[in-house]
């Protein structure tokens, strides 16, 4: 009946929060939640496993701090404009991470931080192509991504 109870429950709560708490909306929201969880079950998503989920807040903290820092960096580059020269370029980073969920999280982190964009992951060679706006030292960026994010993600997911 309910393959994903947590998903269904959060859908009902969301529906009630958006539409107001009445009996009619409770029934309607429950119907929507049941059908949505059936739809989810037919997609058969792989269940992500997070043995050390308690480390997630640390990751979120690091990422929020980095987003603030790189926002300031990118904004100052854009404001300085043509006066200050910067060199952008592609870097290739070899990854030891293999868990698909962890890779997805890493891609979201790299892309949502201004100044770095995740372009392409090659699953055969296990490398990722990243474009960096202000590329001073390639090895420094590789060390940053491997040491700051990948090590923590490997600890969380594997």
């Amino acid at each position: 009946m309910l393959p994903y109870p947590l998903l269904s429950a959060s859908l009902v709560v969301m529906w009630l929060a958006l539409n107001g708490f009445t009996l009619g909306h409770l029934i309607l929201g429950s119907v929507v939640a049941v059908f949505a969880s059936w739809g989810m079950a037919s997609l058969r998503p792989a269940k992500p496993r997070m043995p050390k989920w308690y480390l997630l807040p640390k990751l979120v903290g690091i990422v929020l701090y980095d987003i603030v820092r790189s926002n300031i960096a990118v904004a100052s580059i854009l404001v300085a404009g043509r006066g200050r020269r910067f060199r952008s370029g592609f870097i290739t980073v070899p990854l030891d991470l293999q868990n698909p969920t962890a890779l997805a999280v890493l891609a979201v982190v790299v892309t949502s931080t201004p100044g770095t964009a995740w372009l392409e992951y090659n699953s055969l060679s296990r490398t990722v192509l990243i474009h960096v706006l202000d590329l001073v030292d390639e090895a420094e960026w590789q060390a940053l991504i491997k040491g700051r994010y990948e090590a923590l993600l490997m600890e969380i997911f594997e």
Binding site: N71, V74, S112, T113, P114, T116
Partner: peptide, 11 residues
């Protein structure tokens, strides 16, 4: 250019 809109979507 792909880096520029991330300012608007993050902060």
């Amino acid at each position: 250019r792909i880096h520029a809109p991330t300012l608007g979507t993050s902060w």
